[in-house]
Design a binder for these strands. Sequence first.
DNA 1: GGCAGGTCTCAGGATTTCCTCAAAAAAGAA
DNA 2: TTCTTTTTTGAGGAAATCCTGAGACCTGCC
Lengths: 244, 244
Amino acid sequence: MASFGATILVVEDEPELAGALERSLVAHGYRVLSTGSGEEALTLFTRVHPDLVLLDLLLPDISGLEICRRIRAVSSTPMIVLSVKNSEHDKVEALDLGADDYVAKPFGIAEVLARIRVALRRMERQNDQAAEEQVRIGPLVVELGSHRVLLNGRDIALTPTEYELLRIFVTHRGKLLTRQMLLQMLWGAASHDRMHSLHVYVAQLRQKIEPRPTEPRLILTIPGVGYRFSDEVEAARELDSPEP
Amino acid sequence: MASFGATILVVEDEPELAGALERSLVAHGYRVLSTGSGEEALTLFTRVHPDLVLLDLLLPDISGLEICRRIRAVSSTPMIVLSVKNSEHDKVEALDLGADDYVAKPFGIAEVLARIRVALRRMERQNDQAAEEQVRIGPLVVELGSHRVLLNGRDIALTPTEYELLRIFVTHRGKLLTRQMLLQMLWGAASHDRMHSLHVYVAQLRQKIEPRPTEPRLILTIPGVGYRFSDEVEAARELDSPEP
DNA sequence: GGCAGGTCTCAGGATTTCCTCAAAAAAGAA
DNA sequence: TTCTTTTTTGAGGAAATCCTGAGACCTGCC
């Protein structure tokens, strides 16, 4: 999360430019993921949660604007658009769709780096308020950085999707998460087909982290709407004594 | 704080440009403070705490960069720099000093407006996180964000329709709601068939949130018309003592 | 009082939603 | 490839919710 060592997703189909960007970014201490495909960009985004996205508007498959919208629908990750489309209309459209910045090609790499610093600096300031590398809910500890989950000090093995679901829950604890939102955050598209999968994952997660899975204290069902992860330690207290 | 009606401080010494900016901003619903002097800009800033600053770098007295630094030292208010100095070095310098954006002159006013929207949108989102939506009527608390309803601190379990009905009531508390309106809001079409259902839901809600359901204090029947949800704390006071 | 219109209570069956268990399909690892 | 892990799908059942009916009640009017 820190500005230094931040992960940046580069979405650029021009190999030469992509390579140049990648080299500069790496040289400045960032970790870089790069792709020229819009579909892959969305997949990568939901998988790795980069700290910032550099986005070309002209891609072979999906429009960059569409990517913009899809990402902004589920996340507030900063996005900087790079484009040869330099009409004012294009800029306004991208910015209104959720882009944080718009840099016209050709650009100087130093300027792009500076704008990246601005975006990350702002993020960092914002995160300082709610910075959490580790979340505790009663005897349950989720270490966001290392992908580890502890229950009563013991490691809990979770599959990638289970972990991702738990991460979403604990980072939004106390708030209502509709099934639609969860589908969107887990798989990008809110396809109704996966609704059942979601139910199964919730059940599996309950099996692993709830003391009495049939009587959930942490992942609460809100009938007809979705789920809410309890944010009250009180509700989790009884986790210590599994069975009366 | 709201995006609409936000206060913007314009620091620009070229009278013609300043005037044009001011007119556009006012036309788009912003409140505008304008000055061509750096010193006055700082004074105005500390006095009125604008929501955003538009800043020219070339001013007669202080350098715009100096203003940037001085403002950033005490505040995280978004700043957008406008400048004819378009070398990459100038941009990087201003951005690293705390500016949120850098627009080269000459610029299109639509682009500047879009970038203002981006900055204000971001601010607003940040503020949203802090402000939890929550309605209190005496001992009854409805947390819109988490879909929770508390009575005297205890959770009340409501079915989806009951909750939706309560939500409608509390967001229109004090106002008369005709049965037609309620039918419309609950089920879209104001079909008369469901009138009885509505009555039943009102009754169920009373059972759950009224201390003496037969003597309603919160959901008041307006005979022949509909219902009104009390907005007087007084009316809800007695909730503390369920039975005399 | 008796009646009419509207409102309220209670309860049960129909329906929808959600959960469980388990197996098939897909994706990764060796 | 083969084996293992993970994901997705399926069927059945449990639970919660929704809706409706029958009648009580209440209020104002004749």
